[in-house]
């Protein structure tokens, strides 16, 4: 039996009178790689941001490792310390070098010893294939490099789950591959990952499950390859055909 890491239970999210998430329920087991796909504006990113309390929810429950996530409570800080997040626009700290970006949270937030952290950080740079760039500032790096630093930064605190919020959407096409390659490595390591993405190929190859969201609801979920080959719902069929048309 596998461990349940995350449980969405009828999650509702509204912005003003617009309902973004309309009763989303699903469960994520340890080691799963869940890819969220769907038309833009259907709340995929919002769902991800609710997990670590960057957004508050208006209804339902999110359980992380058995405990309810409450965005407004102080306990949210402990939840966040066990979750790693990668943003569409990287959000690296511009005044710090790549190495300092990775080391900041372990040293400041987790109070770890600098030496230990630096050693681990260097290992992470090797993993994301950026050992030669550890002293560069974000402004001196390409988008793909910045995103790989951001991944290293998220890994530095040994998170129990990784949230990827459209990690390749802001990248130049030629650097998308290097970021996806790193994510593939992480998948092989057996990390638990939630990925919001438009990279259907990646979702099919690497994902253990695909969740299709539309209109704030889960329309369909299942094995990525099966879903891609034969979507059950009409909406998923339509969406996947537009996506694959655009890809060719």
């Amino acid at each position: 039996m596998t461990d349940t890491v995350l449980k969405f239970d009828h999650v509702v999210k509204r912005f003003g009178d617009r309902t973004i998430l309309d009763g989303v329920s699903t469960t994520v087991q340890a080691g799963e790689i869940v890819c969220f796909i769907g038309p833009s504006g259907t709340g995929k990113s919002t769902l991800l941001r609710c997990v670590n309390g960057l957004e508050t929810i208006e209804g339902g429950n999110i359980l992380f490792e058995g405990k309810a996530v409450q965005a407004k409570q102080r306990s949210i800080i402990d939840v966040r310390r066990r979750i790693g997040m990668i943003f569409q626009h990287f959000n690296l700290y511009p005044h710090l070098t790549a190495l300092e970006n990775v080391m900041l949270a372990p040293v400041v937030v987790h109070g770890e010893d600098r030496k230990t952290v630096e050693e681990r950080a260097r290992g992470l740079f090797e993993k994301v294939r950026l050992s030669h760039r550890i002293n560069a500032y974000p402004a001196q790096m390409s988008g793909g490099e910045q995103q790989r630093v951001a991944i290293a930064r998220a890994l530095a605190t040994n998170p129990h789950i990784l949230l990827f919020d459209e990690p390749t959407s802001a990248l130049d096409p030629e650097t998308v591959g290097e970021v996806l390659a790193v994510m593939r490595d992480l998948a092989v390591e057996g990390r638990t990952m939630l990925v919001v993405t438009h990279e259907i190929r990646f979702a099919a190859d690497v994902g253990t499950r695909m969740v299709f969201l539309d209109g704030g609801k889960i329309v369909e979920e299942g094995n990525p390859r099966e879903m891609l080959a034969a979507p059950k719902s009409e909406r998923a069929k339509r969406f996947l055909s537009t996506i694959s048309n655009a890809a060719h």
């Binding site: 979750i83 005044h95 900041l104 937030v109």
Partner: peptide
């Protein structure tokens, strides 16, 4: 705003956030 979000996602407290990320910038 992304700076505040990145720091929040890493579990910085308010004081740590201002001291290490906001003030230097």
């Amino acid at each position: 705003p992304g700076q505040f979000e990145a720091a929040a996602s890493q579990g910085f407290t308010r004081v740590q956030l201002y001291r290490h990320i906001v003030l230097p910038q």
